[in-house]
Computed example of a mutant assay.
Amino acid sequence: MDPAFFEQPILNSPYEYPSRHWELDESGKPTNKIESKRREVAFISAIPTVKKRSGGQREIVFHEAAQALETETQQYDLTGLISGIRQRVDRWRELPDPNSWHVTPETARLLHHWRSHRFGDIRPFFCQVEAVETAIWLTEVAPSLGKEGRRFLDQIEAASEGANPGLARLALKLATGAGKTTVMAMIIAWQTINAVRRPGSSRFTRGFLVVTPGVTIRDRLRVLQPNDPDSYY
Rank of each mutant, 00 (worst) to 15 (best):
Q155C: 09
Y232K: 01
I44F: 05
E94V: 00
S201V: 07
V223A: 10
D2H: 11
R115L: 11
P9Q: 05
I156D: 01
A46D: 14
A142K: 07
V210D: 04
G162T: 00
P30I: 13
Q75I: 08
G166Y: 08
Q67I: 03
P98A: 10
H113A: 08
T212L: 09
N164S: 12
S231K: 02
R222E: 08
F208M: 06
L110M: 15
F62E: 10
L172Y: 00
P199D: 06
A4N: 03
N12I: 01
E148A: 12
R38Y: 02
P226T: 10
Y17C: 04
F43D: 07
G200Y: 10
P199M: 08
D230E: 15
E106K: 09
L174Q: 02
A65E: 10
I44V: 15
I85K: 09
P199T: 07
T71S: 15
G162D: 02
K52R: 14
P3M: 10
N12S: 03
A178V: 05
L78G: 02
I193N: 04
L174P: 00
A178I: 07
T104D: 02
L138C: 12
L224S: 04
R91D: 05
W137F: 15
T212E: 07
L69V: 10
R38C: 10
S116W: 12
W114G: 01
V196L: 15
F119M: 04
S116P: 00
N12C: 10
I82E: 02
G179Y: 07
G207P: 00
F152W: 13
A68T: 02
K51C: 10
W92E: 03
P143W: 12
Q225E: 14
Y76D: 05
M184R: 00
A142S: 07
Q75V: 10
S83A: 14
D97H: 03
R58S: 12
F126Y: 15
E64V: 03
T134H: 01
S19C: 12
F126D: 09
S45F: 13
V183L: 00
P3G: 01
F62K: 02
T181W: 06
I82T: 03
W101V: 08
Q87R: 11
I156A: 04
Q128V: 08
H63W: 08
K180S: 08
Q225V: 06
R220T: 09
T212K: 02
Q75P: 00
D121K: 13
F6I: 04
R123D: 01
R86G: 00
T73K: 10
Q57R: 13
R39H: 01
L69M: 14
W92M: 05
I60W: 09
G214T: 03
K173G: 00
